[in-house]
């Protein structure tokens, strides 16, 4: 298979931080870690191009990835690989963007980075194979990477046994028997002593540490947030009633209370009758304004954020959380009340 290998400016030999603004480039040769990778891959697969970019440029210009993939396709590339990026955040993000662009262009792709690299979370449905934490583990990381490349090049799915760090996608299939019949078969297996059999592996969830109490609420600005699908009447930005893919923000200026003729909930997971009768039940603006005027809180942030927390995917919810946190931090908000429905 003809392979394009993505590395950052450092591993391409251009330079360190001072060269992080390097523009995307393609070279028709193996560079840096690509040399050893080629040796490990043998003769069946050839790295025909090394594509690279400075980490800062890649972080600030997401379109670099599609550009590099298109140039690689001009070289007849059939597989795009990226890394290993170890725990380097910007490099991991760049690898994520490159393999995502490759998949969007219809090419198989594979990235290598440490499981803690934030780039892992940016990749959907494309395998990521584990590397070590730093370049000191280059030798082992490349050994594992090469084996994974061979497997992906052979059209095989990468599994946790191969060092895959992101989940293997689950896909819908039509079975021979109905779910009811399969439930009976599974029950017979369970009664027969099989305690492990299942069609759904148990998911693992993050544990979120609650924030420490606020020491001096009368000194700080508080924001109101809600996943209650809480929008101005008419839902001007068409926030979804379930499986929300976005969040929206609206001004609270000039509002002392959430009046029924001004706000409504479009949440699809419960009857909104009582919420819409008095929207303060979803976003406690009336009480928050009272606390503000009493001086119990330093002030109320002048806008609120909302999404619909109804079957929202964990990936989307995590992204909303990061974006809300960053936005409020920028606005010097020190505490937030997030009402859940």
């Amino acid at each position: 298979m003809r392979i394009a290998h993505y590395v950052n400016q450092f591993f391409a030999g251009v330079g360190g931080e001072e060269e992080a603004g390097t523009r995307p480039e393609l070279r028709r040769e193996t560079v840096g870690p690509g040399k050893r990778l080629q040796a490990l891959l043998g003769e069946e697969h050839e790295i025909v191009a090394t594509i690279f970019c400075g980490d800062d440029h890649a972080a600030g210009h997401p379109e670099f990835a599609a550009d590099l993939v298109a140039r690689a396709q001009d070289e007849g590339v059939e597989l795009v690989i990226a890394g290993p990026a170890f725990t380097s955040g910007r490099y991991g993000l760049a690898c994520a963007r490159v393999v995502t662009a490759a998949a969007e262009a219809g090419l198989p792709a594979l990235a290598a980075m440490h499981g803690d690299n934030p780039g892992v979370g940016e990749i959907e449905g494309i395998p990521v194979v584990a590397s070590g934490e730093t370049a000191r583990t280059m030798r082992d990381s490349l050994d594992r990477f090469a084996e994974a490349v061979k497997k992906v090049a052979g059209g095989e799915e990468l599994t946790p046994e191969d060092g895959r760090v992101n989940p293997v996608p689950r896909r819908n299939r039509v079975a021979d028997h109905s779910a009811a019949q399969r439930a009976v078969a599974l029950l017979l297996a369970r009664l027969g002593g099989d305690e492990e059999a299942t069609e759904i592996p148990l998911p693992r969830f993050d544990q979120v540490e609650p924030a420490a109490p606020v020491d001096d609420p009368e000194q700080i600005v508080v924001a109101l947030l809600t996943e209650g699908g809480f929008v101005p009447v008419g839902n001007p930005d068409r926030l979804e009633s379930s499986r929300a893919s976005k969040w929206v923000r609206y001004s609270l200026e000039g509002h002392d209370s959430a009046a029924a003729e001004e706000f409504e909930s479009v949440h699809g997971g419960f009857s909104t009758q009582w919420a819409n009768e008095d929207p303060n039940r979803i976003l406690p603006l009336d009480v928050a304004r009272e606390l503000e005027s009493e001086g119990a809180i330093g002030g109320l942030h002048n806008e609120y954020f909302t999404t619909t927390g109804n079957g929202t995917t964990v990936a989307d919810a995590r992204r909303f959380g990061v974006e809300w946190g960053a936005d409020l931090h920028q606005a010097s908000v020190q505490a937030a009340i997030l009402t859940a429905t």
Partner: peptide, 18 residues
């Protein structure tokens, strides 16, 4: 993409699910 957690609340005492 089929890589999210399959269940909102998984069981803790048994795993037999269709």
């Amino acid at each position: 993409d089929g890589t999210g957690p399959s269940l909102v609340v998984p069981p803790t005492k048994g795993v037999a699910m269709v």
